[in-house]
């Protein structure tokens, strides 16, 4: 449980470890698309960390094919993402049309691969890697939703033309990570 809160808040995937920034900036214009993007990434990320662990301990470690780790992880993640995209296209074409290019882009989302690799690097057991993956994904979704609400508020306020759109988005993201520094050194000892 502590690990879950730790990865979600203290070293949040996006704002502290700066992973997965491109969907974070790209899909956060509207609150509901950000939420669905977050959920899609949670689904993929948790599956990826589970698959990562299985691959590591049943295939790569016994045959010490460590060098294959990134390649095989990416293969599995791509498959899971492709599957997710098909499910979303089938269930709601509107959502698929809105998420657009960012859905297949989850494959290249550095948070997904990053978390899977971190799992192996930290030597997490099965349960730990699942909670780590879930915590990172929940952190990602939480921050996506907060950031989307902030950007929706910016959309209706008259931001000066020079800053409108992406620039103010980057500034707010910076300030948000400044705020998340407050959680630095948080330990429930």
């Amino acid at each position: 449980m502590l690990l879950l809160v730790g990865t979600a808040l203290v070293n949040n995937v996006v704002l502290v470890q700066f992973l997965g920034l491109c969907p974070f900036m790209g899909v956060s214009n509207k609150l509901d698309t950000a939420l669905s993007m977050g959920l899609a990434t949670t689904f993929v990320l948790t599956l990826a960390s589970v698959a990562g662990w299985l691959l590591e301990y049943f295939v790569l470690a016994p045959l010490d094919l460590g060098f294959l780790r990134i390649l095989s992880f990416i293969l599995v993640i791509a498959a899971v993402v492709q599957f997710t995209e098909m499910v979303i296209r089938k269930t709601s074409a509107a959502l698929h049309q809105v998420l657009g290019i960012f859905l297949p882009l989850i494959t290249t989302n550095c948070a997904v691969l990053g978390v899977a690799l971190l799992n192996v690097q930290e030597g997490h057991g099965f349960l730990q890697s699942v909670t780590f993956g879930l915590g990172a994904a929940l952190g990602f979704t939480l921050v996506m939703v907060i950031f989307a609400a902030l950007r929706e508020r910016l959309a209706i306020s008259n931001v000066p033309a020079a800053f409108a759109g992406a620039p103010i988005g980057f500034i707010v993201a910076g300030l948000l990570s400044l705020a998340f520094m407050g959680f630095a050194g948080l330990n429930f000892a």
């Binding site: 300030l175 998340f180 407050g182 630095a184 050194g185 948080l186």
Partner: peptide, 20 residues
């Protein structure tokens, strides 16, 4: 539990982020 002795400033900024 945090790293900083006085968390008020961080708390306000974090809650401001949640206001929208």
């Amino acid at each position: 539990w945090g790293g900083y002795p006085e968390g008020a400033a961080f708390a306000v900024i974090l809650m401001n982020a949640l206001t929208p």
